[in-house]
Computed example of a mutant assay.
Amino acid sequence: MKEEILFDLSVLVGTWESVNLNPTVMICRNEDNYMLTIIHMNETSKQASPATYEIQEDENGYFISYNLKRTVISYDAKLDLLTLSALGDYMRN
């Protein structure tokens, strides 16, 4: 079994830009929970449509349920790089 390294979610708070042109991600704290918002932009209308997910934790690490699938959240502190398994790598904005 692969061991995930847990980290303090507070280091992820902020806005993250995709390196692969995927939707922008924002992470914030809401009382006792951390929330991850994926901001989809409609290219035609230029309207933003945010979708917010609670970051959950189990014995394998952090994740959200995105499009009915488990999307793993990992973080490389040396590179300050956020990775979402369904969307790729993100750099802090």
Rank of each mutant, 00 (worst) to 15 (best):
I27T: 02
K46I: 04
Y34T: 04
T52K: 12
E54Y: 01
S49G: 03
N60L: 02
M26A: 11
H40A: 00
Y62I: 10
W16Y: 11
M26Q: 14
E54R: 15
Y62C: 11
T44A: 06
S18R: 14
S18G: 07
R70G: 04
N42D: 10
I55H: 01
N22P: 09
L21Y: 00
R29Y: 11
N33T: 15
I64G: 12
V19Q: 00
C28P: 00
D32Y: 04
Y66L: 05
E54I: 13
F63R: 12
F63D: 14
K69I: 09
Y53W: 03
Y62G: 07
S18Y: 08
T44K: 06
Y34H: 03
R29T: 00
K69E: 15
E17K: 15
R29V: 09
N20I: 04
Y53L: 09
E43D: 14
K78D: 05
T52R: 10
S18Q: 02
I64N: 07
T71F: 03
L68S: 14
E43P: 08
D58W: 01
A51G: 08
K46N: 02
T52L: 11
N33W: 12
S65L: 02
T24A: 01
M41Y: 11
Q47S: 13
T24W: 08
D32R: 07
Y75A: 02
T44H: 04
S45T: 15
M35C: 15
I39R: 06
K78W: 00
H40G: 06
N67D: 05
S45E: 14
N60C: 02
N30G: 02
C28W: 03
S45D: 11
M26Y: 08
D58A: 00
Y66Q: 07
K78N: 06
I27Q: 07
I39N: 13
Y62S: 10
N20L: 03
M41A: 03
A48C: 09
M41Q: 13
I64R: 11
K46G: 01
G61F: 06
V19Y: 01
D58Y: 00
K78C: 06
K69R: 15
T24K: 14
N30L: 08
I73F: 09
E17R: 15
L36P: 09
Y66W: 14
N33K: 15
V19C: 03
V25L: 05
N42M: 03
N33Y: 14
P50V: 13
I38F: 13
D76L: 12
V19R: 02
D58K: 08
P50E: 13
A77T: 10
G61V: 08
T71P: 00
S18A: 01
Y75G: 07
K69D: 12
W16K: 02
A48K: 05
P50Q: 13
V25N: 09
L21W: 01
S49T: 06
Q56G: 08
A48W: 04
